[in-house]
């Protein structure tokens, strides 16, 4: 039984959401159309949703640079996969330990973990420690380690899940049968909390995939291990440099990608993420819904 008034509310919802959907998607369309625009047209008419003249020149240029971009993707994929797998496993193992309430020293460990959520030394202190003590500058560890590998929030999420969703009797009976803790973790706790592993894993993967700050802090601009986001950021930095030195549009050739090539590189940078988006989005919504129901 749908009343007339409910329909009007539904229409209002449609209108607002259609506007927001357009606002959300339009910039990506502009990016895409700009990358297919003829360079001269782009300079004359600006970036446009309906360019006068199309051209594949930007992509021709990119395919000639394929080595750099392909390598960027390879680095991104390696860092994302290694960081996510290692990060999720060590977080979950710590959480498993912390979910055992009679563990001696558990409160101390919990405090040490919680404290990291409240206080930090700041980015510069981290930078000093990582570069002066561990010397990870210009190594792949510079992309992997600082900040991203694991955090206290993920550990707490795992811990809560282990505590509330896995029956203690199950773990105890496995212990009585002589299973080792690592075995119990891998054979019982892990399979039973798969949704949590996927949720945390996807969030971590997203952070690694999109990260450009570590590349900016820990890689020199001519480093050979630039991830795709670092490449995008470096192009940005070059343009900023030229603009700040008032040479702006006078120098559009050379190593600075011209108007349309820039946009094409950004398209290449964002397409895989948009391709993976349906998977990300589904799990993301699932995770959020599970979180709300739990409360």
């Amino acid at each position: 039984m749908i009343e007339n008034k409910d329909k009007w509310w539904s229409y209002a919802g449609h209108i607002v959401m259609i506007i927001l959907s357009i606002v959300a998607i339009a910039p990506f369309l502009l990016l895409l159309m700009s990358s297919f625009t003829d360079e001269a047209t782009a300079l004359k008419n600006g970036y446009s949703f309906f360019p006068e003249k199309f051209s594949l020149n930007a992509y021709h240029y990119i395919s000639s640079q394929w080595e750099m971009i392909g390598k960027g993707y390879l680095i991104t994929i390696i860092v994302t996969v290694v960081g996510t797998v290692v990060g999720v496993i060590i977080s979950a193992m710590l959480a498993y330990t912390l979910s055992k309430h009679d563990l001696p020293g558990r409160n101390l460990l919990m405090f040490l973990l919680t404290f990291t959520m409240l206080f930090n030394g700041g980015l510069t202190s981290s930078y000093i420690v990582y570069t002066q003590i561990f010397h990870i500058k210009d190594t792949i560890l510079g992309l992997l380690l600082p900040g991203l590998l694991m955090n206290a929030y993920n550990v707490v999420m795992f811990k809560n899940y282990f505590e509330h969703s896995i029956p203690n009797a199950l773990l105890e009976s496995a212990r009585i049968d002589g299973a080792t803790e690592l075995n119990i973790f891998a054979k019982i706790s892990m399979p039973l909390s798969l949704p949590m592993f996927v949720t945390v894993g996807l969030t971590t993967a997203l952070m690694y995939w999109n990260d450009w700050t570590n590349g900016m802090y820990y890689l020199s601009t001519n480093s050979s291990i630039q991830s795709i986001q670092t490449i995008l950021n470096n192009i940005n930095e070059n343009i900023k440099f030229l603009q700040q030195n008032n040479v702006g549009n006078m120098v559009s050739t050379g190593d600075m990608p011209s108007a349309t090539i820039r946009m094409a590189i950004a398209v290449v940078g964002v397409v895989p993420m948009l391709g993976l988006f349906p998977i990300f989005q589904r799990w993301f919504v699932k995770g959020a819904t599970a979180g709300a129901v739990k409360e």
Binding site: M17, S21, G46, M263, A266, M273
Partner: peptide
């Protein structure tokens, strides 16, 4: 799904999108 897309994009890409709109010479 549509309104969630921007959430998954890095800020570097966002700055490219912003530039496409705001650039004084070529901006939309």
């Amino acid at each position: 799904s549509a309104v969630l897309i921007p959430f998954f994009i890095s800020m570097v890409v966002v700055s490219y999108l912003g530039f496409a709109f705001l650039s004084s010479e070529n901006g939309f």
